[in-house]
Simulated assay, not measured.
Amino acid sequence: MKPEFENIPLVKAEKRFEIEFNGHYAFIDYRETMHQISLIHTEAEPELAGTGAAAAVVEKTLNFIEESEKKLLPFCPYVFAFIKKHPEWKRIVDERFEGYDKL
């Protein structure tokens, strides 16, 4: 994560995790059950393109999921690709996730 995002708090809203940077948002839509959090869609406002905001919200969200001791279902293609690039995060993916063996 780029240093400028390290101290920005992750906000868990009703249906999304989000960070605000310079008045703009990067967020991930999610669904949550007792034992799992499904990440559905990651997006950053156009003003944040190329800043690393999307990667920062993903990393902060993965940390949140790990700290909550829940399992991840990475349905979002961006999150899936992030985990492929950073395989240490596979540790929080639910082993029953259909694409688990492709991570």
Rank of each mutant, 00 (worst) to 15 (best):
K2N: 15
K2E: 14
K2C: 05
K2L: 14
P3S: 15
E4T: 13
E6P: 00
I8N: 01
I8E: 03
P9D: 13
P9H: 11
K12L: 05
R16H: 09
E18Q: 11
E18P: 01
E18Y: 10
E18S: 08
E18F: 10
I19S: 02
I19D: 02
F21M: 11
N22Q: 15
G23W: 10
G23H: 10
G23N: 11
G23I: 14
H24D: 11
Y25L: 14
F27E: 13
I28V: 09
D29S: 13
R31G: 08
R31T: 15
E32R: 06
E32S: 12
T33P: 04
T33C: 08
T33M: 10
M34S: 14
M34T: 15
M34E: 15
M34H: 14
H35F: 15
Q36E: 15
Q36G: 00
I37C: 02
L39R: 03
T42V: 10
T42R: 01
E43C: 03
A44I: 08
A44R: 05
E45G: 02
L48Q: 06
G52Q: 09
A53D: 06
A54D: 05
A54K: 02
A56G: 04
V58N: 01
E59Y: 06
T61A: 10
T61E: 01
F64I: 08
F64G: 02
I65W: 02
S68D: 05
E69Q: 11
K70G: 04
K71H: 09
L72F: 04
L73Q: 05
P74N: 04
P74S: 06
F75Y: 13
P77Y: 05
P77T: 08
P77C: 07
Y78N: 02
Y78H: 08
Y78T: 05
V79I: 13
V79G: 02
F80M: 04
A81C: 00
A81P: 00
F82H: 06
K84R: 14
K84E: 11
H86E: 08
H86Q: 09
P87H: 03
P87G: 08
P87R: 04
E88I: 12
W89Q: 07
K90Y: 01
R91F: 03
I92A: 10
I92N: 06
V93T: 05
V93D: 00
V93P: 00
D94G: 07
E95F: 07
R96A: 14
F97Y: 12
E98C: 05
E98N: 13
G99R: 15
G99D: 11
Y100V: 11
D101Y: 04
D101K: 12
K102H: 10
K102L: 14
L103C: 07
L103T: 08
L103S: 05
L103F: 09
